[in-house]
């Protein structure tokens, strides 16, 4: 069951030796269950900080994040993450299989069910037969697929990804983007993704949230009205795609005032 997530008036400030640094101020936004949302913004605007607050790993200094009607006090149930740094988020001492089943250990799942889930998840990301490999024996793109498989194996209600494709080469990146679209089609999990790649944000999302300013707030929520299924060639040639990416780009660069795109 996909769930929504409601961000109300979230503020975040850090104590630094030179004084208090406000990073986020009064960020409010509500994610509709089942949607794919990308969070974009200039470098250093606080995208990752916001994402960490949403995962429950960091407590905001103001405001709340609500899941299933109550404010979260830590990582919410049904959450799965995919982080940028796959070399560090996958445990190098565990095989692919054990990495994927690691989060399932708590859930008291029968052994046969466990290996079935591992197999299914690996099939979903196109990595059949790598169960016994160690993550570091795989390429960067494949490791990120394992991270996605690990997330899927937990049957999440909410998926959060932090710059998941930032450390892979361009070709692999396109492949992984299409994998994410497939996962979306197959499972319809509510997904939040931070990215610095505006094309990627528009290509994958239902909504693009633009963070801007110091301290940052939501500049605009851009609704991406391009139909699914999308494809690398056709969607990226769509005039609407060009319009939207230009609009988001100028928002991120602070070149244009937020407007309603008609």
């Amino acid at each position: 069951m996909s769930i929504g997530i409601t961000i109300s008036d979230v503020s975040m400030s850090f104590e630094t030796p030179t004084g208090t640094k406000d990073v986020l101020r009064n960020v409010s936004y509500s994610v509709t269950p089942g949607l794919f949302v990308a969070i974009v913004g200039p470098s250093g605007v606080g995208k990752t900080t916001l994402l960490r607050i949403l995962t429950g790993l960091t407590k905001p200094t103001g405001g709340t994040v609500q899941v299933r009607g109550s404010a979260i006090e830590g990582p919410p149930d049904g959450l799965a993450v995919v982080l940028q740094d796959y070399t560090r988020s996958l445990m190098p001492w565990l095989t692919v299989e054990k990495n994927i089943s690691l989060p399932l250990r708590k859930k008291r799942i029968a052994k046969s069910e466990l290996s079935a889930r591992v197999r299914e998840s690996l099939a979903e990301v196109g990595l059949e037969g790598t169960e016994k490999s160690y993550p570091w024996q795989l390429s960067g793109g494949m490791q990120q697929r394992v991270a996605i498989a690990r997330a899927l194996a937990t049957r999440p209600d909410l998926l959060i990804m932090d710059e998941p494709f930032a450390s892979v080469d361009a070709q692999t990146r396109f492949d992984l983007e299409d994998l994410v679209l497939k996962v979306r089609k197959d499972f319809g999990i509510t997904t939040l993704m931070v990215t610095h790649d505006i094309d990627e944000a528009v290509y994958l999302s239902d909504e693009v949230v633009v963070l801007y300013g110091k301290p940052a707030g939501v500049r605009e929520v851009v609704s991406v009205d391009i139909n699914f299924p999308r494809s690398q060639i056709e969607t990226r040639n769509d005039p609407r795609f060009a319009e939207l990416r230009t609009h988001v780009y100028s928002l991120v660069r602070g070149l244009s005032e937020p407007t309603e795109v008609v």
Binding site: L57, P75, L83, R88, S89, P103, R105
Partner: peptide, 22 residues
């Protein structure tokens, strides 16, 4: 590794699992 420990936390591994497995 911070990333490993946080990954374990997000996936709701218990304290003892975090210790023994991560």
């Amino acid at each position: 590794d911070v990333v490993q420990v946080e990954t374990a936390r997000v996936f709701h591994l218990s304290k003892s699992q975090q210790l023994w497995r991560v």
